[in-house]
C-alpha cells in the first residue's frame, strides 16, 4: 500500500525521530535530561505565553461564536442572514496566515483605518491608551478573525439539534426564557461548546504564519521558538528543540483527543 508507505515515511518516521531525540542527551545517551530542559524558565515562559494566547483567543471565539450562532439559528432572523454568515464563515475560517496579518495591520495598526477613524472622529487614541496590535490583546483579536467563523461552523449542528419541542415542553411547564437556557439548552450544549473550545485552542496553538508576519520573532510563542531553532539552532541544543516539538505534539494531541471524546458525548443528543 503506497498510502502506508507514504504515511510512514513522511508522518510517522519524522515524529518518531523527534520523540526519540527528545529522550536523548546531545551525546546520544537516553535520559530524561532533555525533557527536564523544557522546564527552564525561557521555555516554560514560551509555553505559558502560547497557552495563554490560545486560551484567550479560543475563549473569545467560543463565547462570541456561540452567542452569534445562537442568534442566527434561534433568534428569529431571516434565513438569508444565516446563509450569508455561513458562507462568509467558510471563507474566513480559511483566511489565515500572512494575508490576515496584513489585513489587521491595515485595520488596527498604528496607521490602520479603524485606529485613525477612532482618533480623528471620536477622539480616542487607542495606541496612546496602551493598545497595540502587536501585543497580546492585538494578537488575540487577530486570531479571533478565523476562530469566530470556525466556532460558528462547528457549533451550528449542535444548535440545530436543539429541538423546538424541548423548548415548548419547558415553556408549557412554566419555565422562563432564562430557565430554559440555563437548565435545558446550556447543559445540552456544554459538551459541544467545550469540544469546540478545545479545537479552537489547538488551532490557535499551532498558528505560526500570522504571528510571525505580525511580530517577527518578538513574541516568543512555542511555534516561533521552534521556527528559529530550525533556522539556526538558537537554543544551542538540538535535542531541546526535539523536546519542544514533542511538547507541542502532546498538547495538540491532548486537546484533539478530548475534543473527539466530547463530540462523541454531544452526538448522543443529535440523533
Amino acid at each position: 500500500m503506497p498510502f502506508f508507505l507514504f504515511a510512514f515515511m513522511f508522518l510517522i518516521a519524522p515524529i518518531f525521530y523527534l520523540v526519540n531525540g527528545a529522550f536523548q542527551t546531545q551525546d546520544g545517551q537516553y535520559s530524561l535530561e532533555t525533557i527536564r530542559g523544557l522546564f527552564a524558565p525561557e521555555i516554560l515562559n514560551s509555553f505559558s505565553l502560547s497557552i495563554r494566547l490560545s486560551l484567550a483567543s479560543a475563549g473569545m471565539g467560543a463565547i462570541f461564536g456561540l452567542i452569534l450562532a445562537y442568534s442566527l439559528i434561534h433568534g428569529g432572523l431571516p434565513s438569508w442572514v444565516r446563509r450569508a454568515f455561513m458562507t462568509f464563515s467558510g471563507v474566513a475560517s480559511n483566511f489565515a496566515g500572512v494575508p490576515l496579518a496584513f489585513a489587521f495591520i491595515a485595520t488596527l495598526g498604528r496607521l490602520g483605518l479603524v485606529t485613525l477613524v477612532l482618533r480623528d472622529f471620536l477622539g480616542v487614541n487607542i495606541y496612546a491608551s496602551g493598545f497595540s496590535l502587536f501585543s497580546f490583546l492585538g494578537l488575540a483579536l487577530t486570531y479571533l478573525y478565523f476562530q469566530l467563523p470556525l466556532m460558528i461552523l462547528m457549533i451550528t449542528p449542535a444548535l440545530e439539534g436543539l429541538r423546538p419541542e424541548w423548548r415548548e415542553a419547558a415553556e408549557s411547564l412554566g419555565a422562563t426564557r432564562r430557565q430554559y437556557l440555563s437548565r435545558v439548552a446550556m447543559p445540552l450544549l456544554a459538551p459541544s461548546v467545550l469540544g469546540c473550545f478545545l479545537l479552537l485552542f489547538a488551532n490557535a496553538f499551532g498558528t505560526l504564519a500570522t504571528i510571525y508576519a505580525l511580530t517577527g520573532a518578538n513574541f516568543q510563542v512555542v511555534p516561533i521558538v521552534l521556527f528559529q531553532q530550525i533556522r539556526g539552532n538558537v537554543l544551542y541544543n538540538p535535542n531541546l528543540g526535539y523536546a519542544i516539538a514533542v511538547g507541542m505534539i502532546v498538547l495538540m494531541g491532548l486537546s484533539n483527543t478530548l475534543y473527539f471524546i466530547l463530540r462523541r458525548r454531544a452526538e448522543r443528543w443529535q440523533k
Binding site: 508522518l11 518516521a13 523527534l18 505560526l208 507541542m248
Partner: peptide, 17 residues
C-alpha cells in the same frame, strides 16, 4: 494526523531525517 501535528513540527522532522 496532519491536523494534530503542526506543520512546523512536521518540517522539523523532515529537515533532520
Amino acid at each position: 494526523m496532519p491536523l494534530i501535528i503542526p506543520p512546523v513540527v512536521l518540517v522539523f522532522g523532515y529537515v533532520r531525517i
